[in-house]
Nucleic acid binder design. Sequence first.
DNA 1: CGGGTTTGACCTGCGC
DNA 2: GCGCAGGTCAAACCCG
Length: 163
Amino acid sequence: MTERNPIAADSSPDSDFSNQWPFELSDYLNFDDNQWLQIDPTTESNFVYHANELEGDHSHIEGTSSSTRDTNSTTMSESENWKKELVKERVAFKTKSEVEILDDGYRWRKYGKKMVKDSPNPRNYYRCSVEGCPVKKRVEKDKDDPRYVITTYEGMHTHPTPS
DNA sequence: CGGGTTTGACCTGCGC
DNA sequence: GCGCAGGTCAAACCCG
């Protein structure tokens, strides 16, 4: 599967991520359970940076990137648990799509499939085909609306997008 | 033949 | 400690 899937062109050519996600992004991000975050289409290029902010501390979402979290003042047990979850970048979003396999420019190899408890649809696990690249993603259909596909990316690519 | 998919088994973390 | 659920492995299989 090397052909592109031009479902929709992204409208922000300056955005780095418009190259990475050349399909239509939905207005919602999901980070866990019921944690849906609505994003502004004009700033959607920022969302990647904030996925990990939400992993353990759902209380705030900031507009800047990466790791500025050492100044928090939560309790000890909380911050430890929270650190543990911040090992990897993670971002999830919901796309309206007929197909689950969206070509985002990278090559993915499927390595697992699992039924999840809260959904009648199976969850598929993919890994980046490039050797040494730690990126994984999981794809599942929205249980409430099977016309939507929930994709969760984990990690950052260590290589440029193959073309 | 090489790369990706399928699929059941296995591993691990967590709640009870 | 046990059982469940999510995540991963890996052998067999499929396909260009």
